[in-house]
């Protein structure tokens, strides 16, 4: 397919590789909107991937795996939420502890599941119109991607048009004002963090049950942490998270696609492109006047 192969590769890579970024960043977006940060999502991603794979293998149904991943994420999120609801507990420090705890648990419980093969989520074939096998393979979309896209728009609507969404934003922007309105700040944050982590766990299920479709200890390779950066770059806007995730997923596929057509110079540089991209976008969108436009007001405050 030559040059078109690169285009198809990058576009399909954006969808396949972008899905975990999308789900984790939506989860983090929800969490941060409530005024707290959860850096433990890398651990949530690993725990989600492991639980999904293990449960799919044990029960024979990948969908049970997806539910298990969401539950595993929610449990880790609940621990984080309870920890940081205590006075003077720093959410960044607790998040790092949760990151190590989550990945440790996933490695420990995941040992017996490295070797077996678990049933995979069925891809939704949207490429039936084309006779080209490459396009058909590229358009075999993960059901979790469709779920992620839907969630991006649902969350957008949730924050702008629903009472609960407004409450989450109020808690994130000005906890004191929210309290004056009679909104329970700890309870709102608890739900935002638990649901956000559940989304992150589902992102892990995509890794182990769809693409690349295996459980290994190296499966996440920092994607959970990158997704946290991605939220900042998407300016806490769920629909922007979708575009940013696609960009990151596509950037991940650039190196291999170029090498497949014989362009191999600078592949280390191409492999680093998602990170370079983060730095560049941060640099260009940053200005002294509107540095943190869209950032929840209480984010990073220790109350």
């Amino acid at each position: 397919m030559g040059g078109w192969g690169v285009v198809v590769g990058v576009l399909s890579g954006a969808v396949r590789g972008g899905t975990p970024f999308l789900l984790v960043s939506l989860g983090e977006c929800l969490t941060e909107k409530s005024g707290k940060i959860n850096l433990g999502l890398e651990g949530v991603l690993l725990m989600g991937a492991m639980s999904a794979y293990a449960c799919a293998y044990k029960t024979g149904s990948p969908w049970v795996g997806v539910v298990a991943a969401a539950l595993a994420g929610a449990i880790l999120g609940a621990i984080h939420a309870l920890l940081i609801s205590r006075p003077r507990v720093n959410d960044i420090a607790a998040g790092i502890a949760m990151l190590i705890f989550g990945s440790g648990c996933a490695f420990y419980f995941g040992k017996p599941f490295i070797q077996p093969s678990a049933p995979q989520l069925p891809g939704i074939p949207l490429g039936g119109w084309s006779d080209v096998p490459q396009i058909q393979a590229a358009l075999k979309i993960s059901p979790l991607f469709i779920f992620g896209v839907a969630m991006a728009f649902v969350l957008q609507w949730f924050f702008r048009g629903t009472r609960w969404g407004m409450q989450v934003r109020a808690v994130g922007d000005s906890p004191a004002a929210a309290r004056a309105l009679g909104i329970s700040v700890p309870r709102t944050r608890f739900f935002a963090i638990v649901l956000g982590s559940a989304l992150g766990g589902i992102g892990g299920a995509h890794l182990s049950l769809f693409y690349p479709g295996a459980w290994t200890e190296a499966i996440s390779s920092g994607q959970g942490l990158m997704a946290v950066a991605l939220v900042i770059f998407a300016r806490w806007n769920p629909v922007h998270c979708l575009w940013a995730s696609l960009l990151f997923g596509g950037a991940q596929a650039v190196g291999p696609s170029l090498q497949a057509v014989g362009i191999s110079t600078g592949y280390y540089l191409w492999n680093a492109s998602p990170y370079v991209l983060t730095l560049l976008v941060m640099l260009f969108t940053c200005s002294t006047k509107r540095t943190l436009a869209g950032a929840p007001g209480a984010l990073g405050a220790s109350s």
């Binding site: 590769g9 590789g17 393979a137 690349p212 295996a214 991940q252 596929a253 291999p256 090498q259």
Partner: peptide
């Protein structure tokens, strides 16, 4: 693993 899968697909 993600890059290996990407390389295989490409």
């Amino acid at each position: 693993p993600v890059k290996e899968a990407e390389a295989a697909s490409s």
